[in-house]
């Protein structure tokens, strides 16, 4: 079942990239996807049934919108810090606790944190994420955990866990 999931995903990806719906092209796509599924199939998708729940797609859309918004904000934030003559930075590495359990959800959270304003994920050890922050706004762990993981953690929990 999980082999089928990755086969369909890589097939969709092939069709999007090549964007030609002729028979030889589709046949080549099938062969390439089959090889991909045979090699990487056992690493991903421990529960394919999750893809079929509309509730998860809804939260995925919410997450996507807030993610894109955070990306745009991050850009202006970095541009502001770079262009400001005095360079308002106060960098450091902080430790943040995450409540997410699955590897996939944690990867997504780490990626989202990297794209949000001023933060970049350095490492995950156990339940703790180490995050480089360009401007530490608070010294209180509970407060900065909420600032960094923010809404992403609850959205990701709703669609990926």
């Amino acid at each position: 079942m999980r082999y089928l999931g990755i086969f369909i995903l890589s097939m969709i990806f092939w069709l999007l990239v090549t964007f030609r719906f002729t028979l030889p092209n589709i046949a080549a796509g099938v062969v390439a996807s089959a090889i991909t599924a045979a090699i990487f199939g056992r690493y991903y998708f421990h529960n394919v049934g999750k893809f079929l729940q509309p509730r998860r797609w809804f939260w995925f859309t919410v997450y996507l919108v807030s993610f894109i918004w955070a990306c745009i904000k991050a850009n202006f934030d970095v541009a502001y810090r770079v262009l400001h003559p005095a360079m308002p930075i106060k960098p450091g590495i902080v430790k943040v606790k995450t409540t997410l359990k699955s590897d996939f959800a944690r990867t997504l959270l780490a990626n989202s944190i990297t794209m949000t304003p001023g933060t970049i994920t350095v490492d995950i050890i156990g339940d703790e994420m180490y995050i480089h922050w360009i401007f530490i706004r608070s010294e209180d762990p509970a407060l900065y955990t909420r600032m960094i993981t923010g809404r992403f953690e609850e959205y990701i929990k709703k669609f990926a866990e």
Binding site: A74, N75, V82, P117
Partner: peptide
């Protein structure tokens, strides 16, 4: 500009990932 102006590896990577990606 961030790659040149910011002080250390970590801050420079911040500029490199965010601005350049978007």
């Amino acid at each position: 500009l961030g790659l040149i102006r910011l002080p250390d590896v970590y801050n420079r990577l911040q500029a490199a990932t965010k601005c350049v990606t978007l």
